[in-house]
Design a protein around this nucleic acid. Sequence first.
RNA 1: GCGCCUUUAGCUCAGUUGGUUAGAGCAUCUGGUUUACACCCAGAGGGUCGGGGGUUCGAGUCCCUCAGGGCGCACCA
Length: 862
Amino acid sequence: MTEIPDKPALEGLEAKWGSVWEEQGTYAFAREGAERGDVYSIDTPPPTASGSLHVGHVFSYTHTDTVARFQRMRGKRVFYPMGWDDNGLPTERRVQNYYGVRCDPSLPYVEGFVPPHEGGDGKSIKAADQQPISRRNFIELCERLTLEDEKQFEDLWRTLGLSVDWKQSYRTIGADSLRASQLAFLRNVERGEAYQAQAPTLWDVTFRTAVAQAELEDREQPSAYHTLSFHRTDGEGDILIDTTRPELLAACVALVAHPDDERYQNLFGTTVRTPLFDVEVPILSHHLAQQDKGTGIAMICTFGDVTDVVWWRELDLPNRAILGFDGRVISEAPEAITSERGRELFAQLAGKTVFSAKQLVVEALQASGELTGEIRKITHPVKFFEKGDKPLEIVSTRQWYIVNGARDEELRERLLAHGRELDWHPDFMRVRYENWVEGLSGDWLISRQRFFGVPIPVWYPLDDDGNPVYDAPILPSEAQLPVDPSSDLPAGFSEEQRGVPGGFVGEVDVMDTWATSSLTPQLAGGWERDPELYDLVFPFSMRPQGQDIIRTWLFSTLLRSELESGQLPWQNAGISGWILDPDRKKMSKSKGNVVTPAGMLEQHGSDAVRYWAASAKLGTDAAFDPQNPTQIKIGRRLAIKLLNAAKFTLGFDASGAGTVTEPIDRSMLAGLARVIEDATRAFENYDHARALELTESYFWTFCDDYLELVKERAHNGTGQDQASAVTALRAALSVFVRLLAPFIPFATEEVWSWFGEGSVHVAAWPESSELTALAGEDADPGLLDLVGGALIGIRGAKTAAKASQRTPVTLAVVQAPEQDRGRLASAAADLAAVGRIAELRIESADVDGVTVATIELEQPEA
RNA sequence: GCGCCUUUAGCUCAGUUGGUUAGAGCAUCUGGUUUACACCCAGAGGGUCGGGGGUUCGAGUCCCUCAGGGCGCACCA
């Protein structure tokens, strides 16, 4: 126990208690002797280590922490790890900007490499000025920087007071994660759930990597319709088609119209010649062609959009792709282009960007007279990589996929069933999951042509000509993991055989970052590493996360768990809402309205900020105005009030404390017992905001009414009257501190240290029986309210007379309904004391509620 | 286009299975330096619960419909 300061303050509590908790291991997972039923496990979202923390993080992580603290106090052994998502593109980009480098896998490793910059803000180093370095050097820098970033994140989380067990941390690029990630992949391959395929793939030309459906977003883009003339080979004239992508004309493989379209009925099965390139292509029918779009007949190119891919596949068309991985037109013209004019034009197009190619083709079409009418500007949605800034192209490449139910009705049904089985908080978030699962259009593409990630653990044999035999990948044994196929060897091969005919070659691609993040329950829980731990924590009790990553993180985690074990990875999913700025816009870095969390915590104190976060329900967006952080100020006030009320309460002589006998004392405790029950129920239902509201509201009643009513008796009273008040006050304080502990952990711990044993955060969550034992089963819970009503009347009369609340009252007559008269009278002494009433008469009368009928104030000396 | 959420006081939000006269905090105004707290206390004013229709003895709450705001999925010739 520590001494109560003269002037209790919030300042410094974060540092004071943060280090105590660390030393005492307050939040350590108590694994010894644990059974699954004792454990509450949390599948914490690993923040992107190279990103910056924003207010939204503080918001949602606080939600989770209140639950963790509640469960811990209820006696659960809480498994609350923290992970860092450090692999992937965000880290690569940050490393490029921070050190002024970029990865060039063709370069050799340089021992003791010193990067050209250190700590640049990133904006100043242009891509052209970045120093190319080897993949291994690049990855070393990624490792170095993420470790630094993680340290800063951890400091912030500690300041915020997250009750994480820091001994359970993991990194998504760490050796254990690498192994688990590759192991899960191998199992997927063995069960036929992971496979490779050569297929048209959505491709980001800036990052030169394939991307998955989950990483797409639509953006409205300006575009234009061009009307092109295709020439009927039967000489019966031209067919007009509208296209927004004339630059892909050289890749045209067919025209398509709806089978029911009367305008084109007699043309199905005939052919036309393309403008400029003079390639003969068929006119086909397909139900996806829309009669009311453009001229009702479209050109199919390899590949302008995903509909082209469907047509190409279903109509069994040839591939005449003309775009390369860099988004430029390739140098080799499709064989189908045979005319001299066509080949000449294509030679001019070669090497051009999509943008320049379009200009050139349009000019050529205008010159040849095959562009009809005006070019009509439109805007339309175009698919982008969510982190990219150029439209995605579609290129045909070999990639690894994991099944996700898009092409497997049975799997999809199982995934949907798991979605129904999971307890969502709030429940309606399930719909987002269902929308996503039902809308999946293809299996999950997990290959990324990047550097800092988990290597796909396969090699390919090389045939006698030195070409990889992709159909016969060589897999490592589970014991070999983790492996890096570009430096490790497949069994039975030697390093000399790398890259030579008859030898082997390692896969260079890495996995999608979600392919690792989808295994967070496995990574944190020690899957295939620490089976005893895994059995204790899996399936996890709780998955907290933001609503924006339901389709990525939540879905992919559920999928991997279903594939590996046929099981839901968690019992509950808690989905936090957005933080909105005062204009109701989602806060984001690009909009420049982000405040740094560290600054917020510094300025207002962690408890205050936590209060703000915790006062919002799961699934509900919260407005936040940095200029006027109302909720934070209220939280700060609450924390300060608790310190002061505790100091006051503990200042009364407690030598006679033991039993509670006064009706008003018993009433207050009975009311608080009810608050315990309601708040506990709210917490059990993942409604932390309700628990806070109930507690906070009664706490203010406690301070403003009860404490005022009894302070005279507690201070100057004698015998059992005094002892009753002090006993009730102390019991209530203990309960309030524990009820508020999940929300304002620093102030509550400070207060607890003045009278309690150990940490409040491992103290027992209050139970109503503690208080009913003191108050008695027959306590009158409504009495406090009733007396409070009389108190308001007396205060109001003084205020109306513009008199101080301290003004003595010579006579007050309080009227109450008959049934309330006796109840009110039981607190008459307290009421008279707080009102400084010399003569207090309580009468029964025909009134609706307690009414102050007469009040005579002592006249101040003139 | 399909769907989900949302609309309550100037602001931010509660409002449980339908049940007295719809609540809180902030802000505003009026008072008060009361031996815990001026980072305080007391009091007051402020709402046709987005519009319309319906069910019901009774609707902020349930149903229908329209409108605004946010979001998810789909749409890309």
